[in-house]
Amino acid sequence: MASAALIESSLSGIPVKRGKVRDVYDFGDRLLFVATDRISAFDWILSPGIPDKGRVLTQISRFWFERFESVSNHLLSMNPADVPLPDDADLEALSGRCMVVRKTEVIPFECVVRGYLSGSGWKDYLATGAVCGIDLLEGLQQSDQLPEPLFTPATKAETGHDENVSFQTMSDAIGQELAEKLRDLSIQIYQQGSEYAQQRGIILADTKFEFGILDGEPILIDEVLTPDSSRFWPADRYQPGGAQLSLDKQFVRDWLETTTWDKNSPPPPLPEEIVSKTREKYFEAYKMLTGKECTW
């Protein structure tokens, strides 16, 4: 039986910023990330939420942070009691969906790595023969594996849509040395994650990373290789030449595309069946990657 979706957390008296999915509480030298069950698509937060989705995102991120032990990251603890919570904090609601993290200077770019031709990359290729200005061979099909992973940064948007930019634009904004370091690190993490996921029956088609600066060096922050930040395709169903079956929120985007919604007005509510199937897909991704059952 699914628990009720947590749409918004509440910690009285603690400064908070609310993103599309996470509520971020400021405790001075550290932050408390609370992954809610909100789900967004096409720059809108949808309703209702997906029960336990935030727990899946948090536990998958934890799995990868621990697996990539050679890559510095912001995770300090999974226990919300490691920050001074108010007396009326609802610990049951917070269970499994919290990360206590180091505070960093967030780099204002999404570090996107694409291993397959899909999503906005496919649309760009159809229009220009390139992805984010990177020329590709003619005749590629939708969902084809690319000859090598592409690094295609995007601006980070607090609200609204992230915008693809060139590597040069990123370099001009943050410096060539840091941009190259982020590019190389992003591709390294993607390749390591992709190799592991393939062994578990999942194709990691593309993903996005976020980094922050701490003590002058970039460290991995936010979420890592989750169904919200990545395209996960079941390897045994992979068939290039069209869209793929997904284990991520593409399922929700695909349903929205079948409606008459114009993407400029409030979106229609998600039917119960779509909510349930989306939850199942997130749970399946967790089980395939970690080898563990969701116990929530």
Rank of each mutant, 00 (worst) to 15 (best):
E210G: 00
T226V: 00
E223P: 07
S229Q: 05
L247V: 03
D228N: 00
P218M: 08
S229G: 05
L225W: 05
R231S: 12
P268M: 10
D248Q: 09
E273F: 00
I213D: 03
V252P: 02
S229Y: 02
T258S: 14
F211T: 04
P266W: 07
E257V: 14
D248F: 06
V252S: 01
V275G: 04
K249R: 08
P240R: 06
E210R: 12
D236N: 13
P227R: 05
S229P: 10
E217W: 01
W233P: 10
F251R: 03
L256R: 03
K249Q: 07
S246C: 08
E273H: 04
N264S: 14
P269R: 05
I221W: 02
P269G: 09
T278H: 02
W255P: 02
R231I: 08
P268S: 08
Q239N: 15
A235G: 05
A243Q: 15
P268C: 11
K208G: 07
G216E: 15
T226P: 07
P268R: 08
D228P: 04
S229C: 08
W233S: 12
I219G: 01
Q239V: 12
T258F: 13
G216F: 13
D262C: 09
R253P: 03
R231G: 08
I221K: 11
P240I: 13
P240G: 04
I274K: 00
S265Y: 10
F211Q: 00
T260C: 07
D262L: 08
P227Q: 01
E272W: 00
P227T: 05
T259A: 11
A235P: 00
Q239F: 09
P218L: 11
K277E: 15
G216K: 07
P271H: 07
D215A: 13
P271S: 03
D228W: 03
P227V: 03
V275I: 07
T260S: 15
V252T: 11
P267T: 12
D222F: 06
K277I: 11
W261G: 10
S229M: 08
R231V: 05
S229V: 12
G241L: 10
S265R: 14
E257L: 15
L225V: 06
T226Y: 03
T259P: 13
I274V: 02
T260N: 15
E273N: 08
K263M: 04
K277C: 05
V275W: 00
T278E: 02
F211N: 01
V252A: 01
T278K: 00
D248A: 13
K249T: 11
P218F: 02
D222Q: 07
Y238H: 13
F251Y: 15
T259D: 14
S276D: 06
L220P: 03
K249P: 13
F251H: 15
L256Q: 09
R231T: 06
R237E: 15
E272I: 01
E257S: 10
E223I: 04
S229N: 13
D248H: 09
K263D: 07
T278P: 01
W233N: 15
K249H: 07
P218C: 06
G212A: 01
